[in-house]
Structures are given as C-alpha cells and as structure tokens.
Design a protein around this nucleic acid. Structure first.
Lengths: 176, 176
DNA sequence: CTACGATAGTCGGACGTCCTAGTATCTGTT
DNA sequence: AACAGATACTAGGACGTCCGACTATCGTAG
C-alpha cells in the first residue's frame, strides 16, 4: 500500500448514494428539470412498493399465502355474509378478473374458501370463507399488525402524509 | 319516480367509497387502531404503484419495451462508457440478478443492447448500449416526461413530500 | 317472445419478480 | 501453489398481473 495508491481513494466505497436522487440529478443535467421530480416520485413509488410487499410477504409466507390471497381473505372476513361474488372482489381490490380467478383457485385448493352458486344470477359465482380461512386471516393479521403495520419504517406523521398524498393520486386516477 | 322511491337513495350507486379508507375504518372497528394507519399506508403504496406503472407502461408500449427494460436502457444511457456489467445494473436497480438476465435477454433480442466480455473479469458480462437503444431511450424519455412525469396527478408540493417520505422508507430498508 | 348487447367468469399466453440450484471464475489463505 | 470461500451469471420453476378471446347467462328493446 504505497502513498501513490492512496491517491485514488477520493470515493471510498462508491455506493452509499441514493440511486433515485442520482437519477434526479442526471435528469436535471440533461435539461429535463420539469420532469425530474415526477420521475423521482414514480421511481420511488416502485421501489417503496417492492420493499413494503417484501416485508408483508415475509410474514405471510408462514401461513402459505401471498398478499393478493390475503387481501381476498380479509375482504370476505369483513363481508357480512362471509361470501362475495368474484366480480365484487375484483372491484374492491382493483384488479383484473383473471387475477381474482387465480387467487380464488389457490385459496380453494388450500381449503380456505369455497366456490358456490349465486342464488339469483347463474353467471356469477360466490366465494365463501371457510373456517380455516377465517382463522388464518385472523392469525396472519395479528402478525402483520405487529411486525409490519405498526412499524412501517417511517414516522407517524409521514404515514398520514403518505396516505393523504396517495389518496389524491388514486382519486385522480378514478379509483373512487 | 315517486317520492317513495326517493327515500331509498341515501347511497345511490354504493361504490364511490374509497376502499382503503373503508379498510382503515374496519381495522379500527376490530380494535387494531395502532396498525390501521400502517395498513392504509402499505395498501395505498400497492395501489399507487399499480396506477403509476400502468401509466408509464401505456407510453412505453409504443416502443415495445417495459419499464424494467427502460430502466436498464437509461442506466446505460447515463453511464460514461455506455456499458455496465450485469451485476452493477442489478445493484443500481435493486432487483434480483435473474431479473437483469431476463431484461437483458429481451433487450438484446430487440437489438437495443449487446452482451460483451468484461476485459478484466471473465465471470462478468458487459452490457453495451447500441445506437438503436440510445435513440429509443431518448425518444421514450421525451414522451414519458411529457405525458407522465410532468403531470403525475398530484400537486407539486405533494410530489416533493412523497419523495421525501419514501426516501426515508428506502433508507430505513437499507437501500443506501 | 325473440334477438342483441352487456355482464360474469375462465382459459391461454406474455411478462417481471423472486427463489433455489448450478457452473465458472476470482481471491485471499495457508 | 493449492484450496476454500466469495462472486458473476444462468437455468428452471412458482406466482401475480395484465391482455385478448371465448362461453354462458342476463336484460331489454322491438
């Protein structure tokens, strides 16, 4: 290790930079100032979702379900009759009908829900929460609350701010 | 339309409710107050990402690329040499190595990038941006800036607030 | 009462993500 | 100099999402 070698160490490990702040800087450098913040917002959203989903699924893995399937279970859990038509689930969860088919297939195979005929509309199919599904939903929610939702990695004021901003975005997108 | 009919219209179409606000209400109703805001934040994040990604991909579809592949192109676009090793791309984009392999496979098949040998490390593979890739990156960025990043569906103050909060979340997760 | 457009769900395919496992190569140790 | 552990990338598989196409059923307009 000669003094000469020390010369080339102005940036020790060369990685503790925020990749998104870096991208924003480059955006401005290329004359795209008016879009830089929007780019940073969209990119942050992508990465933050990835992080949050990872934490949630790490907990749910114990129960053998994914977040998508957990959401279906909770929707049924909260429904008065413990059952909902497929289409209604897709509406509430804001996902494509085929995604509901997929999730319900797996939940049914796991014995957590059951498909049954809709009494008034033979096109529709009711999804019914079974006892095992109800127990799993409750237990998984307790763990999720304790391990993720109560410690989301941002201060409480940030949490409410975040929800507020994203509510505007969702409303603007026509979600409700 | 009799006066009697008017009586049963307290909730006209029964759907203009924010699904996430509704879930938050139910969380509190079940005694999970301390987790309600975190749940709302995580769920909002999921949905907002879906919305943002949808807008971005609607623009990129014209160019035959996805957001994942576009990000790889921009990374190369900004790199000094116009080329980066696979691993470096995965680090910057915060994705699994196999996701990089996948994206580069498709970019290469489309003639936008090229794999080449790393001069100093025979394990590594350099990804090189080709002319067509550079042109596509520039054109797609112009469209994205105009159609998405400059009008993200939330006020400018919200945008900076959002980025700030998510930066904390990402730092807390060990992103940088 | 029939016919046509709308609606509910499913199927097959494309894509991105992750995980586990496996091969090749590098690097530091002994 | 040989070897053991780390690192770079790829292969195969699971999963969720969307899209387009298809079938069955509903509801309503003539």
């Amino acid at each position: 290790m000669t003094p000469h070698d020390d010369q080339r160490v102005p940036h020790p490990d060369r990685e503790p930079l925020d990749p998104i702040a870096e991208a924003r800087r480059l955006w401005i450098e290329h004359g795209w100032e008016s879009a830089a913040d929007g780019m940073a917002a969209v990119t942050s959203l992508m990465r933050a979702q990835q992080i949050a989903l990872g934490r949630v699924e790490a907990v749910l893995r114990r129960y053998g379900v994914t977040f998508a399937r957990y959401e279906v279970l909770m929707l049924l859990f909260f429904s008065r009759a413990g059952s909902l038509p497929m289409g209604r689930i897709g509406q509430r969860l804001q996902v494509h009908p085929t995604s509901v088919t997929n999730a319900v297939d797996r939940l049914e195979a796991a014995g957590l829900v059951r498909r049954s005929a809709h009494p008034a509309d033979r096109r529709a199919i009711l999804v019914e929460l079974l006892g095992a599904g109800r127990e799993l939903a409750l237990a998984a929610t307790k763990d999720l609350n304790a391990e993720v939702f109560e410690a989301p990695g941002i201060p409480p004021s940030g949490v409410t701010g975040l929800v507020g901003i994203l509510t505007e975005l969702r409303r603007d997108a026509g979600d409700f």
